[in-house]
Simulated assay, not measured.
Amino acid sequence: MSSADLIRRHLNAFNSGDVDALMADLHPDATWVTGDHEVPPGTLREFFATAMAGLTPHLELHRIIDGAGVVAAELTETWTHDGQHRQAALVAIFDLRDGRIARAKIYREGSADA
C-alpha cells in the first residue's frame, strides 16, 4: 500500500466514524496535534470517538502530496455544532513509520474551536 493510500484509508475511516479502523492506521505511540492542542498520549481513541459523536465531522480530500515517509493532504472539514453547520480549510501533515501514521499535525484556517 502506498503512503497516499494509507492516508485515503484513514480519511475514509474518519468519515465513516469507524474508530477501530482509524486507530488501526495509527502507530502505537502516535502523536496528534491540531492547532496548538496536542492530544495527550494514550487518549487518541477517546479524542476521535468524542469528536465523531459530538460534532459529526466530515473531511473532503482535495489533494495529497506523497513524500513517502511524509504526506501532506489539503482538505475541507465540515461539522455541526449546536445546530450550526461549519466549514474550514485545513492541511494535515502526516509522518509515517512502519506503514502507519506516527504523527499528525493539523493546520486549520480560522479557529479550531467548535
Rank of each mutant, 00 (worst) to 15 (best):
Gly99Ala: 07
Arg86Met: 07
Pro41Gly: 11
Val70Thr: 15
Ala4Gln: 12
Gly110Phe: 01
Gly17Asn: 06
Asn15Ala: 06
Phe48Ala: 07
Thr76Gln: 09
Leu61Arg: 12
Ala30Gly: 02
Ala49Glu: 09
Arg97Trp: 05
Pro28Thr: 09
Ala104Asp: 05
Thr80Ser: 09
Ala21Gln: 10
Thr34His: 12
Leu55Thr: 13
Thr76Arg: 12
Phe47Lys: 04
Ser3Ala: 14
His10Leu: 04
Gly69Gln: 09
Leu75Val: 03
Arg45Thr: 11
His27Ser: 02
Ala53Ile: 06
Gly110Leu: 07
Glu109Tyr: 04
Thr31Asp: 04
Thr43Ala: 08
Arg8Val: 00
Arg86Ser: 09
Ala4Ile: 05
Val71Ile: 06
Gly110Asp: 06
Ala89Asn: 06
Ala51Ser: 09
Asp5Leu: 01
Asn15Tyr: 05
Met23Ser: 07
Pro40Cys: 15
Leu11Gln: 15
Ser2Glu: 10
His37Arg: 15
Leu59Ile: 05
Glu109Leu: 05
Glu46His: 00
Val70Tyr: 05
Phe48Thr: 07
Phe14Val: 08
His10Tyr: 04
Phe14Ile: 09
Ile7Trp: 02
Ile106Thr: 09
Glu77Leu: 07
Ile101Met: 00
Asp20Val: 12
Pro40Asn: 12
Glu77Arg: 13
Gly54Asp: 11
Pro28Met: 12
Ala92Asn: 05
Gly110Thr: 14
Glu74His: 10
Ala112Gln: 11
His37Tyr: 15
Arg100Met: 13
Val71Ala: 11
His10Phe: 03
Val33Phe: 02
Ala13Glu: 04
Ala92Lys: 02
Ser111Lys: 14
Glu60Phe: 02
His27Phe: 04
Arg100Pro: 02
Ala114Leu: 13
Glu74Leu: 14
Gln84Asn: 05
Ala112Val: 15
His85Phe: 10
Glu46Met: 00
Asp82Phe: 01
Ile93Arg: 14
Ser16Ile: 07
Ala72Met: 12
Pro57Leu: 15
Phe48Val: 03
Arg97Cys: 03
Asp25Cys: 03
Val91Cys: 14
Arg103Cys: 01
Leu59Val: 06
Ala53Asn: 06
Ile101Val: 10
Leu22Asp: 11
Gly83Val: 05
Phe47Pro: 00
Ser2Asn: 14
Ser111Arg: 13
Ala89Ser: 13
Gly83Lys: 04
Arg103Glu: 04
Ile106Asp: 04
Trp32Phe: 08
Asn12Tyr: 00
Glu38Trp: 04
Met1Ala: 07
Arg9Trp: 00
Ala92Glu: 06
Ala49Thr: 06
Leu26Met: 14
Asp25His: 04
Leu61Pro: 00
Arg45Gln: 11
Glu109Asp: 13
Phe48Asp: 05
Asp113Arg: 12
Ala68Asp: 09
Phe47Cys: 03
Ala53Pro: 00
Arg100Ala: 13
Ala21Asp: 08
Gly83Ile: 13
Thr80Gln: 14
Leu55Asp: 09
Ala104Met: 10
Thr76Ser: 04
Asn15Thr: 08
Pro40Lys: 13
Ile7Gln: 09
Val71Asn: 03
Ile101Tyr: 00
Phe48His: 12
Thr34Ser: 14
Pro57Arg: 13
Leu11Thr: 11
Gly67Trp: 03
Ala89Pro: 00
Phe48Ile: 03
Lys105Leu: 10
Thr78Gln: 09
Val70Met: 13
Asp36Gln: 11
Gly99Phe: 05
Pro28Trp: 07
Ala72Leu: 12
Pro40Asp: 14
Leu75Thr: 01
Asn12His: 02
Leu6Pro: 00
Asp5His: 03
Arg86Glu: 11
